[in-house]
Design a protein around this nucleic acid. Structure first.
Lengths: 209, 209
DNA sequence: CGTTGTGAAAGGGTTCACAGCT
DNA sequence: AGCTGTGAACCCTTTCACAACG
């Protein structure tokens, strides 16, 4: 079962899951791959393929039992467990992320926040005490945090990432517009580069003039 | 020349461009695909491949002239022109995006902001007058805005997107955790789903226990 | 009969490896 | 000799199409 599953598959599975949770107490207790697919905006074959990486959850001729499928997806995605994350960089983006409901909904809890700005260190920001970035090793190690969100300027991104990784963090969501270079195969970094997403869009606009 | 270029290629080109601008007034006026690749975190073949979709900008045996390459990339990406965008949804994320420097740096200017909350409509928020979402057709059409950022709740996302598209918007950066369904091949939507990115990360954590 | 589950085919992006210039 | 430019090979993801099954 330890085949390699792509990021895209996992992202779609979360979409399936969160769509199904909105339907759970509906009268129709089964859903076809086609209906699920249309709601999410993918093909039905894609839905079935994604699911079969993890098992056979449906009934031929009928479809998928929603409750049953939810449970399976919940297990696959580890929804039940609340995961504590550290957030580094309490600028505008960092604050937006702190107040972003989606994280809670998806089972995350921002537990510690860090910044290198002395105006912020030690102060309470949106209910959280802001730690010095230098305290990352101490705080992260002691509390066994293994997931972090980085909303720092790109010049300090690599540096902060190394601090996090050396302190035991194994998954980083990076908002700085740069690739994080690391050699451990046990560490996974996902980049969210908002501006370069936009750039891709405007290239599209340009090339369709 | 009208081959289809992938989003990933365009995103990398922007990384090349913005990296090179930091080197422009350096002494070394040429750079090899290898050096550029290492700085960004990709392979040298990838760099060369990306560039050759648009032409031959280098000198064999030497490398790429930085200034020359910058100019070429600037043209490809349409860097010079400032693009005006509309932002719909002035919640926390919306505000973060409004104060996000990256956009300006990459040649974007948020010009109009919209929200459906009557507490916000008509008020000045961070220097911008907030319009009613219902005014999208009027404002967007009149001012020929063709790019938009959506930071609205997922329940209104499809609705807002349709308003934008019907008003002439052809490129949307969508932060709502849902796919936007549209039939026009002239419209491009890029989704940035922060929570599901995180979810992909935590699946990774889980599967490596 | 309808829908799943799945091997096979197709499609798309990345890497290889080397010919071709400078 | 060194580095680019590029077809071919490779790999990964999506789609197809249909056998299997309730």
């Amino acid at each position: 079962m330890s085949k390699k599953i792509s990021d895209s598959t996992i992202k779609r599975l979360t979409l399936y899951y969160y769509f199904l949770t909105t339907k759970k107490d509906n009268t129709d207790i089964v859903i076809s791959s086609q209906e699920l697919a249309q709601s999410i905006g993918v093909t039905d074959a894609q839905v079935r393929k994604d699911l079969t990486y993890f098992g056979s959850f449906g009934k031929r001729g009928t479809g998928y039992n929603i409750k049953h499928l939810c449970e399976k997806l919940s297990n696959i995605l580890g929804v039940k467990k609340v995961i504590e994350v550290a957030l580094v960089g309490v600028g505008n983006l960092g604050k937006a992320l702190m107040s972003y409901r989606g994280f809670e909904e998806y089972g995350y809890k921002i537990k510690y926040i860090f910044d290198s700005d002395h105006q912020k260190i030690g102060k309470k920001i949106m209910g959280y005490t802001c730690f010095n970035t230098f305290a990352i090793p101490e705080v992260v190690k002691k509390n066994k945090i293994n997931m972090a969100i980085m909303s720092v300027p790109k010049d300090s991104a690599q540096n902060v990432a190394e601090k996090l990784i050396n302190s035991g963090v194994r998954a980083i969501l990076n908002f700085a517009p740069c690739k994080i270079i690391h050699d451990s195969s046990k560490v996974k970094v996902i980049n969210v580069d908002v501006a370069s997403e936009l750039k891709a869009l405007s290239y599209y606009l340009l090339s369709n003039k």
